[in-house]
């Protein structure tokens, strides 16, 4: 067996693993979210299917798969079919560059614990998160429904707006790490994570990712009580499921990104690195859920106002200040 073949095999195994972990993770994240929200509201949440409701994700999946796949009469069918997949796939692809552990040695081979350690990982991540916009914009457009269209347009505007702040908040990270590779960024955070070194960038990134994932308090594109269900109003069955899963995968991706960029990735004492990594991701996910249970939805103008007039200026200033400091330090 040639090295190349083994490399390919390893990549496939990693891919499979990541795929399985991500999908089950997303599914159980749904359950976790519902349980946590339940507790915040002093109820139990789903606890009927299996012990502690553990089988709930399975039941949901079965339900979604068996539901009627409904297509509106005047919908733009090809786009309507593609949009949910686009949303889920872009979310999944981002994981290709996430390193969740230092390379390990397996049968004498050093195996990097990342599908593909791109040297421009940050740019890859930013590019994919821009592509995610297409999923909802096209889904909203293709439904031929006023609610979906409005949701799609809102999503478009929101995602593009917050991408700027997100990108700008990553510039200090790259400056500090001196690399676009995510592995390098993680390694650069030993022993002090960037969250402590540059809390402003961390907060801006946290808020922007929350907005990117369209979660409360930034769920303007869905906004049930204004737009029924926003861009996925007309979707049902597994197509809706793809949107739904995409959102939770997205949440995990963004959690991983926060971990990688600001929380020091797998780095931590005592426990094996991979456990650290997942613990940090879960902590971020919990923060997102907690936020959802606490904050009310922003108004559309407040959202835009906050993004353009506050986050972007703050992150710009932060870039300049960080750059100046680094110059002075290295100076």
């Amino acid at each position: 067996m040639s090295d190349f073949a083994i490399d390919i095999l390893l990549i496939l195994v990693k891919l499979g693993l990541i795929f399985a972990v991500l999908l089950t993770g997303a599914a159980y994240l749904v359950l976790a979210e519902r349980r946590v929200l339940g507790r915040i509201q002093r109820r139990y949440g789903p606890n009927r299917v299996g012990p502690f409701g553990m089988m709930q994700p399975l039941a949901d999946a079965v339900k979604l798969l068996t539901k009627e796949d409904f297509i509106p009469a005047q919908a733009d069918k090809p786009i309507f079919f593609v949009a949910p997949g686009l949303a889920a796939v872009t979310a999944l692809l981002a994981f290709a560059v996430v390193p969740f552990s230092p390379p390990i040695t397996l049968f004498g081979r050093e195996v990097p614990m990342v599908v593909c350690d791109l040297n421009i990982g940050v740019l890859y991540f930013l590019g994919l998160s821009s592509l995610a916009v297409y999923g909802i914009a096209l889904g909203g457009w293709a439904s031929n429904s006023k609610y979906a269209l409005l949701g799609g347009i809102r999503g478009l505007a929101q995602l593009i707006s917050y991408e700027l702040a997100m990108g700008l908040s990553l510039v200090p990270v790259v400056l500090m790490a001196g690399s676009f590779s995510l592995t390098d960024i993680v390694l650069a955070q030993n022993p002090v994570p960037f969250a402590l070194l540059n809390p402003v960038a961390f907060l801006v990134f946290l808020i922007s990712t929350a907005a990117e994932s369209k979660r409360i308090p930034f769920d303007i594109p869905e906004a049930e009580n204004e737009l029924v269900a926003g861009f996925h109003t007309e979707y049902s069955g597994m197509r809706f499921g793809l949107f739904f899963v995409g959102e939770y995968i997205n949440m995990m991706i963004l959690g991983s990104m926060i971990t990688v960029f600001f929380l020091g990735g797998w780095i931590g004492p005592v426990l094996p690195p991979i456990v650290w990594f997942f613990a940090k991701v879960m902590a971020v996910a919990f923060v997102f859920i907690w936020m959802r249970g606490t904050l009310p939805r922003l108004r559309y103008d407040q959202l835009m106002h906050f993004g353009w007039k506050f986050l972007i200026p703050v992150s710009l200033i932060n870039v300049i200040v960080t750059g100046a400091l680094l110059l002075w330090l290295k100076g």
Binding site: G38, R42, M291, T294
Partner: peptide, 13 residues
């Protein structure tokens, strides 16, 4: 509010 919700999380449903 984050404190409020967190506190409620530990009360009996």
């Amino acid at each position: 509010p984050f404190y409020v919700t967190l506190r409620n999380m530990f009360k009996k449903p």
